[in-house]
Structures are given as C-alpha cells and as structure tokens.
Amino acid sequence: MGSINPSLLHIGSTLGALLMALMVIFIRLKASDRPVTLRKILIPPLGMSTGFIMFAVPEVRVPLWWALAAFLAGWFVFAYPLIKTTTFHEKEGLIYAKRSKSFILVLLGLLLVRTLLHEFIDRYISIPQSGGLFFILAFGMILHWRVFMFRTYRKLVPQDTLVSR
C-alpha cells in the first residue's frame, strides 16, 4: 500500500477545514430561523465526542499535556469570540438565537488562526497528531460555547418546561 504525499494531505485537510467552516456558517444562519431547544444545544458536543475514537490509532496519540493544552486553548481562547457573538431573544414564548453580523467573521477568523497554527505545528509533529490536537482544541471550544448557551438558555426558560423542550 502506497503512502499519501504529505503536501496533498495538508492541502486536503485545509480544504476540508474550509468546507467545514462554510457548512457551520450555513447551518448556523439557517438555525437562527428556528427556536433553540435543549436538544439542539446538547447534541453537537455529544456527537462530536465520538471523534475521540481516533485516538485508538497509535499514530494520532499525543502526550497528555499536549492534549490538555489544546483543550484549554479551545476552552479559554477560541470559545470566547463565539460566546461574545451568541445571544438569545424570546419571540412568542420560544427562544431564538439572535443572528450576529460578526459571527461569520469570527468563524472565518478562527479558521485563519487554525490554518496559521497548523503551518507552525506541522513542522514539529505528524499530520495525524496535529489533526488530533486540533480536534481536541475544537472540542474544548464547542463544549465551552455550548455550556454557555445551556446556562443562558436555562435562565430564559422556566424550570418546569426545561425538561419538555
């Protein structure tokens, strides 16, 4: 079995990240037309958590402190712009995410930072390892953002109706 050219793999991962960012932008813009529910807040990080299975492959594994640093960078640094651009409003008894003009710019900025960091990190670790680290970073970012959304949503929705939503 032949190996894949690292340059092609890098180009492919960058294009994949761009495609994912565009999909997220499209999905988020469409989602602002529909009410927010507890399920819609909690499912993305739960679904994303299945990606940790990639670490079953030895080539993807990284030292634990690298993983912790990536998670904390996602949690404290990269989640911040998403949290700042996410607000809710109530309409006809339902909660909606307010469409933010800066949300698209924030996501594109995060993609740019990711791409620049990827260029630097790939000099020192393998492509599968950097993919794993960026996954952990993204998970930390999404998890913090969704925890923020959950707390904000819980404040807006009466406790007796929280379970049924």
Rank of each mutant, 00 (worst) to 15 (best):
L72E: 06
L72S: 12
L72F: 09
L72H: 04
A73H: 07
A73F: 11
G74V: 05
W75F: 12
W75I: 08
F76I: 10
F78E: 00
F78Y: 06
F78D: 00
Y80S: 06
P81Q: 05
I83E: 00
I83Y: 00
I83M: 03
K84W: 05
H89S: 07
H89M: 04
H89R: 09
H89G: 05
E90R: 13
E90G: 06
E90I: 13
K91D: 14
K91H: 14
E92I: 00
E92Q: 09
G93D: 04
L94S: 13
L94V: 10
L94W: 07
L94Y: 13
L94E: 14
I95Q: 13
I95Y: 15
Y96F: 07
Y96C: 02
A97V: 14
A97F: 10
K98Q: 14
K98N: 08
R99F: 04
R99V: 01
S100K: 10
K101P: 02
S102A: 14
F103N: 07
F103V: 10
F103A: 13
L105N: 14
V106I: 06
V106C: 06
V106G: 03
L107S: 14
L108C: 12
L108S: 13
L108W: 12
G109R: 03
G109S: 05
G109V: 01
L110Y: 00
L112F: 07
R114C: 08
R114D: 08
R114L: 12
R114S: 11
F120S: 11
F120V: 13
D122T: 04
D122H: 00
D122A: 00
Y124Q: 09
I125G: 03
I125Q: 04
I125K: 07
S126Y: 03
S126T: 13
I127K: 11
I127V: 09
I127D: 05
P128E: 04
P128F: 01
Q129K: 14
Q129S: 08
G131D: 07
G131T: 06
G131I: 06
G132C: 06
F135P: 03
F135A: 01
I136N: 00
I136T: 02
A138K: 00
F139N: 02
M141Y: 06
L143K: 02
L143N: 02
H144C: 07
R146M: 11
R146D: 05
V147G: 01
M149W: 10
F150A: 07
F150H: 10
R151Y: 06
T152D: 03
R154L: 11
K155F: 02
L156T: 02
L156W: 03
V157I: 09
V157F: 04
P158E: 05
Q159Y: 03
Q159A: 05
Q159K: 09
Q159I: 04
Q159S: 03
D160R: 12
D160S: 13
L162Q: 03
L162Y: 04
R165D: 13
R165Y: 13
R165W: 11
R165N: 15
